[in-house]
């Protein structure tokens, strides 16, 4: 059962990766990165149960926090950099 969940999460991560590389605008890419991060958290947690090693959950907590911080950092950076660059990036 954990295996199926892990596989589905992997598929979703792949979809998010495709969106991140295709993403027409910059914000699509950020959204995909964020989504990828949350899916990583889930995957790490499920993997911990799959292997019977619950200390993986610590890593999951770190990922949640770090993901939040880095998304905010990216957003703040681009807000600072202004509109012009956002369109260039696309």
């Amino acid at each position: 059962m954990f295996t199926i969940t892990a596989l589905v999460i992997l598929v979703v991560m792949a979809l998010a990766l495709v969106r991140a590389f295709k993403g027409p605008t910059l914000y699509d890419r950020i959204l995909a990165v964020n989504n990828f991060g949350t899916k990583t958290v889930l995957l790490v947690a499920v993997m911990g149960f799959l292997y019977g090693r619950p200390e993986f959950l610590d890593i999951a907590i770190v990922y949640v926090l770090i993901n939040f911080i880095s998304v905010i950092g990216i957003l703040r950076f681009f807000e600072y950099a202004g509109k012009k660059n956002a369109e260039e990036e696309a």
Binding site: T25, Y27, I30, L31, N34, T38, V41, A45, P54, L57, D58, A60, I61, V64, L65, N67, F68, V71, I72, L75, F78, E79, K83, A86
Partner: peptide, 29 residues
């Protein structure tokens, strides 16, 4: 720990989505 992760991801995920949408709207999208 699982409850902690759930709480964190609920708070952080929704806030990050909100911030993203707001930033996108502000940048003229």
């Amino acid at each position: 720990k699982l409850i902690l992760i759930l709480l964190f991801s609920l708070i952080a995920g929704t806030t990050a989505s909100h911030a993203m949408a707001k930033a996108a709207l502000k940048s003229g999208l």
